[in-house]
C-alpha cells in the first residue's frame, strides 16, 4: 500500500515568485475548482428559489427571495411514489441501517483481520488472498442467489438482511484495513501478550483494538460514507419499509408525475448528500487515509 500513502505536506520546493507560469497555474486551479464547486452551488441556490424564479431566472443566479419552503417540503411531504411523507422516512431508514451495519461490519472485519495477521494459522494467506480477489466481482453476480438464500431462511427483505449484506460486502475492505494495520505493529507486542498469558480474545479486546483507534476511525468513515451512499443493495435487500435515503431520493426525483419541483428535488438531494459531506469536511485527512486504505477494493 506504499503507493497510497497519505499525501505529506509539501515541504520541498520553495514557493515560487508570481511569474506568468504561476498565474497560469493559479488560473487552472481556479477554473477546475469552479468546475468541481458548480454543482454544489447550483444545488444550494436552486433549493432556495421558488419555482417561478427557477422557471424564469438563470440557473446560476442567486435567489431573489430565498426561502426554505422547498427544504421543508423535501423533508416532510415530498412524494416517493405512493406515500408523501418526504425524505425523512428514507433518512431514518438509512440511520437504522447505518448504525448496526457500521458497528457489525467493523467488528467482524477487525476480528478477521486480527486473526489473519497475528495468528498464523494454516490457510490464512489463501483465505486473505481469495478475499482480495473476490472483492472485485460486481454485485450482479451475487444478488439473485442471495435474494433466494434470504428468502429461504425466512429473513426475506428486512433490516437484518440489509445489515448482514453490508457486513458481507464490507468484509474484504475491513479485513484488509485491519490486517495491514496489525501486520505493521511490532510482532514483539503480540509475543509479550502471549507470554503474559492473554488468550485470543483478550489480546484482541484489551491490547490490539485499543491500539487500533486510528484504523477504527478510518473504518468508520469508510463504512459510513459507503453504506450511506449505497443504492443497489438497499434497493434489493432492505424491503419496502426500510428503503434507504438514496432510493427514496431517486423515487422522489424520478417518479414524479406532472410538473417537477426542481427546488424540492435539489433540497432532497442536498439532504441526502449532507451526511457524507459532513463526514468528509469534518474528517479532513482521515477521509484521504480511508479511501487510500480502501483503494484496493474501490
Amino acid at each position: 500500500m506504499t503507493v497510497l500513502a497519505e499525501p505529506l505536506p509539501a515541504a520541498r520546493r520553495r514557493r515560487a515568485r508570481m511569474t506568468p507560469a504561476r498565474w497560469g497555474l493559479y488560473a487552472f486551479i481556479l477554473i477546475s475548482a469552479l468546475y468541481f464547486l458548480l454543482p454544489l452551488y447550483v444545488m444550494v441556490v436552486t433549493s432556495l428559489k421558488p419555482m417561478a424564479e427557477i422557471r424564469q431566472g438563470n440557473l446560476l443566479a442567486l435567489p431573489v427571495s430565498p426561502s426554505i419552503d422547498a427544504w421543508v417540503t423535501a423533508w416532510a411531504s415530498a412524494c416517493t411514489g405512493l406515500t408523501c411523507q418526504g425524505i425523512k422516512v428514507g433518512f431514518f431508514n438509512s440511520v437504522r441501517i447505518l448504525l448496526p451495519s457500521v458497528f457489525i461490519s467493523i467488528l467482524v472485519g477487525s476480528l478477521t483481520g486480527y486473526a489473519l495477521s497475528l495468528w498464523r494459522v494454516r490457510g490464512a494467506s489463501i483465505l486473505f488472498g481469495a478475499m482480495m480477489v473476490v472483492a472485485f466481482i460486481p454485485y450482479q453476480l451475487f444478488i439473485y442467489p442471495l435474494v433466494r438464500v434470504f428468502a429461504f431462511t425466512g429473513l426475506g427483505q428486512s433490516l437484518l438482511t440489509i445489515v448482514i449484506i453490508h457486513t458481507i460486502f464490507g468484509l474484504p475492505t475491513m479485513t484488509l484495513l485491519f490486517r495491514n494495520y496489525f501486520t505493521s505493529l511490532p510482532p514483539e507486542l503480540f509475543k509479550a501478550a502471549r507470554v503474559d498469558g492473554a488468550g485470543f480474545y483478550q489480546i484482541y479486546a484489551r491490547i490490539m483494538m485499543p491500539m487500533a483507534t486510528p484504523m477504527i476511525v478510518v473504518a468508520v468513515i469508510l463504512q459510513t460514507t459507503g453504506i450511506w451512499n449505497d443504492f443497489i443493495l438497499g434497493l434489493v435487500f432492505a424491503g419496502r419499509d426500510n428503503l434507504p435515503m438514496t432510493v427514496q431520493l431517486n423515487n422522489i426525483v424520478n417518479s414524479t408525475q406532472g410538473e417537477r419541483a426542481y427546488n424540492v428535488d435539489m433540497a432532497a438531494t442536498l439532504l441526502t448528500a449532507l451526511l457524507p459531506l459532513l463526514v468528509y469536511f469534518g474528517s479532513g485527512r482521515w477521509f484521504v487515509r480511508g479511501i487510500a486504505a480502501g483503494a484496493v477494493k474501490g
Binding site: A273, L277, Y280
Partner: peptide
Amino acid sequence: YPYSMSFVV
C-alpha cells in the same frame, strides 16, 4: 469532495 457523494446524488 464529490467523491464523498453517492452516484445517485
